[in-house]
């Protein structure tokens, strides 16, 4: 077996204890595995590391747009290694790479309330979608082995990341709700940066009478 990220040969750990049971298929080598940093406890609402209680950002949101997002759950730090990983997986399109994180992602997702929830992806612009050939949110939902139900469309393809933070928060909503629902919803995306994207989507759901919206991202 070779490491999914660096392609180095992984020597399986066969001991007397697991001699009769074939050891679990290892996907990552120890070096690559150790580069992903699990998030330490932090803000109770958004998983920001090193915070006690509710972080300043979340306080700002609650003051100005209360109750949009009940909670965000994330798995790993968005460190340099994760940035390279995302670049190769999402932008270059090395689709299979995500399997490297399956175990951790499924494990964290299962800790959320999710059985009665609709799991919705964040849509990509038409252009990005046909360029990459897949939607990153849907890839994550597929990894979780759950059904993805798309509820939104993109309005325009303006680049979010090029704007300042204030502009991003107050800018027009890039999404359009296509399927109003009355069940709790989990929004799934790859990265939570300022939380604006998921709150834009959440605000549309709430307006249409959705009881609760949470989000799940791999990186934070």
């Amino acid at each position: 077996m070779r490491c999914l990220i660096c392609h180095e040969e992984i020597i399986p750990k066969i001991t007397w204890a697991n001699f009769w049971n074939v050891p679990e298929k290892e996907i990552l080598c120890i070096v690559c595995e150790s580069q992903f940093q699990p998030l330490k406890p932090g803000c109770v609402l958004c998983f920001r590391e090193g915070e006690n209680g509710v972080c300043e950002d979340c306080q700002w949101w609650e003051r100005n747009h209360p109750g949009l997002l009940a909670k965000n759950t994330s798995v790993f730090q968005y460190n340099e290694f994760a940035k390279d990983f995302v670049a190769r997986w999402k932008y270059r399109g090395d689709y299979i790479l995500l399997e490297a994180l399956q175990w951790h992602v499924v494990e964290h997702f299962s800790r959320m309330r999710n059985s009665d929830c609709i799991i919705a992806p964040i849509p990509l612009s038409e252009e990005r979608f046909s360029e990459r050939g897949f939607n990153q949110s849907e890839a994550i939902i597929c990894l979780l082995n759950r059904r993805s139900q798309s509820l939104f469309e993109r309005r325009n393809s303006e680049k979010q990341s090029k704007k300042g933070r204030y502009a991003r928060i107050t800018s027009n909503n890039p999404f359009k709700l296509t399927h109003p629902v009355h069940q709790p919803v989990i929004l799934v995306d790859d990265i939570y940066t300022t939380g604006t994207t998921v709150r834009h989507a959440a605000s549309l759901l709430k307006q249409a009478g959705c009881p609760a919206v949470t989000s799940f991202t791999i990186f934070r």
């Binding site: 190769r88 399109g93 299979i96 979608f129 046909s130 050939g133």
Partner: peptide, 22 residues
């Protein structure tokens, strides 16, 4: 393989040279 949105099926791609595009 990638579930390729354009084709609507699983399509094979090369991982070896993916740094230069797929």
């Amino acid at each position: 393989e990638i579930p390729h949105a354009i084709c609507g099926k699983d399509c094979v791609y090369c991982r070896s040279c993916i740094q230069m595009g797929r």
